[in-house]
Amino acid sequence: MAVRRLHPDQPATFAFTAENLAWAENRIAQYPPGKQASAVIPLLWKAQEQEGWTTEPAIRAVADMLGMAYIRVYEIATFYTMFQLSPVGRKAHFQVCGTTPCMLRGSEGLMDVCRARVHHDPHHLSADGDFSWEEVECIGACANAPVVQIGKDVWEDLTPEGFGKVIDAFADGKPPTPGSQTGRTASSPAGGATTLTDPALYDGAKAGGWQRQFAEREAAAAEAAAKAAAAPPKA
């Protein structure tokens, strides 16, 4: 992680859209009176969703809405790395996971792709302004490492070539389905199941045999009852 600073080029103003403003006011209303400042992270997050990144006017606007000092919101925006302090790509911002499992599975290769295709340095726009990238800490999909988060979704099981195709698809405006890019379901084994493959496991021959005792008990009880009915009563 590096020192996080506001971007030198900032837009002049920021204002929530009518829809986002209503959302923000609703969010503020969820906190008791005097505790509006608690809504600062949701509001900053909404502002970032709207603008793509957290701008300086947005920091001031959120502070004014919540009655906070500018420095207090500035502290929060620089503390949490989820707030992008510099502009991000129009079409996609690639968040390449660089934590140990992804690193062991080749995240460096993915970052090389970013360096080659987007910009040499993270947090910079590509020449056409479509893309930007950064290295992030664990995204929480280690079983499918290496992974890249774009927006709110995660693309998993990436290779440099596969990641290249994802970038192409974003460039074309047709993002591929998120999740594993090798076709497996969630984090199931890559080459299909290797254990628990015996069909007998599922027909009751091996597993589930214990259920038979209930049927046997029932049958025994019925037989005993029949016998008792058939026997002549003692004189």
Binding site: M1, A2, V3, R4, A69, Y70, I71, R72, Y74, E75, T78, F79
Partner: peptide, 17 residues
């Protein structure tokens, strides 16, 4: 309320807005 600590961890810095 003008002084604050921006950033975190090793990169924490004391500054004003």
């Amino acid at each position: 309320e003008e002084l604050g600590a921006i950033g975190r961890g090793e990169d924490m810095e004391i500054t004003t807005y």
